[in-house]
Amino acid sequence: MNLSYWEIKSWLTNVDYTIVGSGIVGLNCALQLKQRFPTASILILERGTLPQGASTKNAGFACFGSLSEIINDLKTHSEDEVFQLVKKRIDGLQLLRQRLGDDIIDYQELGGYELFSKTDDLYEESQSKKDSINLLLKPLFNQEVFSFKPNEFNFKNCHDTLGYNQFEGQIDTGKMMASLTQLVLGSGVKILNNSTVEQFSENDNSVNIKTDQFEFSTSKLLIATNGFASALDISEVKPARAQVLITKPIENLHIKGTFHLDQGYYYFRNIDNRLLFGGGRNLDFKGEETTELTQTQRIQDKLEDLLKTTILPHTAFDIDYRWTGIMGVGQQKKPIVKQLSNNVFCGVRLGGMGVAIGSLVGKELADLL
């Protein structure tokens, strides 16, 4: 890359902290570092023109897990682990709302609903375990979280009763990321987009970083790339592609709130009188373990089929856009926030809960130093 003396001097010299990834985690990490070390030189490197993973691609659910999802988590995690996961999500959402303000991110607590297909056992299991889950979560909310309500949205091919969570909210993802970015730039942190970190090597008191554009050294390196973490040899994180579509505006779209289906593997909501619908990774876990930002026919067909048969059975609609995001998942749902070596740290594996826990993981990452 053809860099001038000024560019090298102003952006790539005497860098104290370099953060890889300008998503929710990276930006919150930068803000926390600036708070702790006001005079430090902080640089964020972002591989995309916009944050490339999931931070600007997600559905904007301010959620902490549907009833069937929490029940499923208890099959692979202890009760205390699940309690701590939910607590971290709630704490993270509170931090996000405090940091940016509800008006700026268009936070609305319209409640969350869960549809249950008639072809599996999730409905019966959720009914039978609702009380024990409410008891588990009572210390966090001081009242019951999950209940059941009649299906007043005219959804078809599902049970007539929907799971309901009064505490679930929604945000405008674009407004959240734009305001976070403005906060970070306003604090004096620099962001370089279209810069992919290819490799790094460590000395006693610095890290040499090679991107596809330039090389430089930094005192500390903080990795916040989540779904792309495996590219930097963090093997506990696997990429998980999420495919999303959105319809053109629909007149009198009566759907309000956030909606889950099939243990949270499908999710939809009304945004600007359009139906945003995503998911389907469970149709092909291995195939969706990729960082390719493309769609597949199988999943797109399934999303459209569910729209026609279940969600909007009596409503004509046209698809306006389709896109994909890349999440970071692993065998456990607890995020990885740790020191990797003397001068390298990471905050990754958000497990599809980036809106909920991203702010907190970013803060925890900065606090490792």
Rank of each mutant, 00 (worst) to 15 (best):
Leu222Glu: 11
Leu162His: 12
Asn193Met: 07
Arg97Ser: 03
Leu185Gly: 10
Leu12Gly: 10
Glu292Cys: 07
Phe83Ala: 03
Asn208His: 06
Ser78Tyr: 07
Pro38Phe: 06
Asn252Thr: 01
Phe345Cys: 09
Glu109Ser: 06
Lys87Ile: 00
Thr290Phe: 01
Asp233Pro: 00
Lys334Ala: 10
Ala356Thr: 11
Asp212Val: 07
Leu93Ser: 08
Thr291Phe: 10
Phe146Ser: 03
Thr258Glu: 02
Lys175Met: 11
Leu232Phe: 14
Thr315Ala: 04
Ser78Trp: 02
Ser55Trp: 11
Leu306Ala: 07
Ile42Arg: 09
Ile191Asn: 12
Arg349Phe: 05
Lys363Gly: 02
Gly163Gln: 06
Ala316Glu: 15
Val344Ser: 07
Asp272Arg: 13
Ile223Asp: 09
Tyr113Asn: 08
Phe268Asn: 14
Phe148Val: 00
Arg89Ser: 06
Glu144Ala: 01
Cys346Thr: 05
Ile246Arg: 07
Thr76Phe: 14
Val348Ile: 12
Thr315Met: 04
Phe141Ser: 00
Asp301Glu: 15
Arg281Glu: 04
Gly163Lys: 01
Gly186Ala: 02
Glu215Ala: 05
Lys88Gln: 08
Leu365Ile: 03
Asp103Ala: 14
Ser117Glu: 09
Val344Ala: 10
Val145Thr: 04
Leu350Ile: 01
His254Arg: 07
Leu95Trp: 15
Ser128Gly: 01
Gly279Glu: 11
Phe61Met: 02
Asn270Lys: 14
Lys175Glu: 00
Lys210Arg: 13
Ala30Asp: 05
Glu304Leu: 13
Tyr265Ala: 13
Gly48Ile: 11
Gly278Ser: 00
Arg97Cys: 01
Tyr265Cys: 07
Pro51Tyr: 14
Leu275Asn: 11
Arg269Pro: 07
Ser117Pro: 04
Asn194His: 15
Asp272Met: 05
Arg36Glu: 03
Asp131Ala: 03
Gly351Ile: 01
Ile223Arg: 03
Gly347Phe: 12
Ser206His: 14
Ser41Cys: 06
Asn2Glu: 10
Thr291Cys: 06
Lys363Ala: 04
Leu307Trp: 04
Asn142Val: 02
Gly174Asp: 14
Ala59Phe: 09
Leu45Ile: 08
Gly92Ala: 08
Ile250Ala: 01
His159Pro: 12
Gly23Glu: 03
Lys302Met: 10
Phe268Glu: 13
Thr315Tyr: 06
Gln331Glu: 10
Ile90Asn: 00
Ser341Asn: 05
Leu192Phe: 13
Glu81Val: 01
Phe345Ile: 11
Arg269Tyr: 14
Gln94Tyr: 09
Gln166Leu: 06
Met1Ile: 12
Leu135Trp: 05
Glu69Pro: 01
Lys220Arg: 10
Met176Ala: 14
Val355Gly: 09
Ser230Met: 00
Ile19Val: 02
Ser217Gly: 02
Cys29Pro: 10
Phe214Leu: 15
Ile104Thr: 14
Gly330Asp: 07
Asn208Cys: 03
Asn208Tyr: 01
Leu95Gly: 10
Thr119Ile: 08
Ile234Ser: 08
Asp73Pro: 01
Asp233Glu: 05
Trp11Val: 10
Lys308Leu: 15
Phe61Pro: 11
Glu69Asn: 12
Gln199Asp: 15
Thr309Val: 12
Asp272Ala: 14
Gly60Gln: 11
Lys9Ser: 12
Ser41Thr: 04
Ser68Gly: 03
Asp301Pro: 08
Arg47Ala: 13
Leu245Asn: 09
Phe268His: 13
Asp73Asn: 12
Pro38His: 02
Ala62Lys: 03
Lys9Tyr: 14
Gly92Thr: 05
Asp272Asn: 15
Leu192Tyr: 12
